[in-house]
Design a protein around this nucleic acid. Sequence first.
RNA 1: GCGCCCGUAGCUCAGCUGGAUAGAGCGUUGGACUACGAAUCCAAAGGUCGCAGGUUCGAAUCCUGCCGGGCGCACCA
Length: 549
Amino acid sequence: MREKLEKIIRNAADIDDSIPVIIEVPSRSEHGHFATNVAMTLASKKRLPPKKLAELIVKNIEDKDGIIERIEIAGPGFINFWIKDRAWYKTLLEVLSSKEKYGSQDVGKGKKVIVEFVSANPTGPLHIGHARGAALGDSLSRIMDFLGYRVTREFYINDAGQQIRLLGESIYSRYKQLSEPDYPFPENGYHGEYIIELAQMISKERDLSLMSKEEAVRFCAERGKEIMLEHIKKDLEAFRVSFDSWFSEKSLYESGLLSRTLNELKNKGLLYEKDGAVWIKTSQFGDDKDRVLRKSDGQFTYFASDIAYHLDKKKRGFDQAINIWGADHHGYIPRLKAALASQGFPEDWLRVLLIQLVKLWKEGKEVKMSKRSGEFITFRELMEEVGVDAMRFVFLTKSHDSSLDFDIDLVKRQDAENPVYYVQYAHARICSILRKAKERGISFRTPDIEELTCLKLPEEMELIRNVVEFPYVLKEIALHLEPHRLTYYLTSLASVFHRYFNLGTSKPELRVVSDDPALTNARLALSEAVRVVIAKGLTLLGVSAPERM
RNA sequence: GCGCCCGUAGCUCAGCUGGAUAGAGCGUUGGACUACGAAUCCAAAGGUCGCAGGUUCGAAUCCUGCCGGGCGCACCA
């Protein structure tokens, strides 16, 4: 519907694709079904007063398909459109014939996109911040996938650096403490309870006392990492997140990719030595200063492997990279972008979404997370306590760049306070209506357009208009990378439906299932369309759409 | 000190990249079921969009400066 209208407006105003045409749904119904402000934005360019221009545009409008009921010029120069009922019925039929494919469209045009998210260090259990990243990354991937992008979900494993070594030392120390309680614990070691469990587990698998300390630490590091990764995978699976690819940082070293990358950079004259370290000239590409790639002790920095990693993403043929990072990494973006710019990457090839902090609340108090003390609520505990549906939905009710207060008690409650049930309930309710109709011997069949003309209530027309916005909402999400818009859309659609449904509580003739067979079938069709969209929307959020609750 | 994010109803947050009288949930107050499911609906109260300038037909949205909160500014990962 929007596309049709946009074409009509573009033709009438004689503007090409270089100028965006904004079509909005006015907040007030007396301003029409759609409104555009093109006359105002174009006024200065065309050197005409907005109202005059609006009149000209309206005069030029050719409505070949006959979808427009009425046009009005209002306020400072808005052009308001009312669409014919018949055109709305037609779009409703499209929903019913497309079913769960409704909303799918080729926005991505086959573009290959890599979405990298979670990427937690395999040195400890996932926490709530990872959960937020997982919800965002996975839903975004689902949506982009649905819209014609070729999406790869990747988890980058930081398994090369010092922190894995430290994991090994921590486990080893806990192992020793089993027999010598005073055995020293590494200064920056991982304090969590899970390290002790790992120590017990690993010492059962293999007799560490037969190894040298060095051997044992390495073994603990390797096994500890493996076990942690298994836990991470299981947690994510339980959260309905699956990755297409697990990319190991270590493999960058082993495959020689890292050294090849450094050679390339060197050949391009981007590297130099100073104070015994190797530096890259990122400052020439917008970074504050140059950065070290190889430290004077010969070790590579994390930044070095990250450059190699991102060059590899490009080599693997991705047209766009989307990274989801914790906000504490924001200072890192300019240097990575600078390094990529030095290799001629387009500015927007890499898009980084930062997720702000999650503050956890329980019993009215903030739950402080401290890695050092090892006191934190893990992803898994949280998932078991509040449930996957509620967790995913709540994470996606906020924009990723605003911090979020997560109140466990509130999210746990299975009542009106929890928006996820509100939407799921609308779905279950529609399923119930369809069941009820069947029990009464009414089998719903797809109507033709004439049969839909008995949908006349303002609430019914409003429902149709809302349902039909779905493809547009998805498109905006993919373009702006903002899946949280979907939760708002679904909540609002559910709200319109609940209101519609409640009309029937006092007036039986306004129920979906009534004595009038034709009307009943049309209303069942409308309800089914709402159901289809809610079910699809929830699926794209990774939330279940129950038929009963 | 420099940089990034945030500041909207009592609380938690939206606000469709500059539009018309700023929205939702929770909370508060009052109402609607012997059932197409009340996990719902209806109504009321609640706002200087942090503050001050600027840009223009028009600003919560853009630019500048303050104020407040969070997070970063390593030859750490």
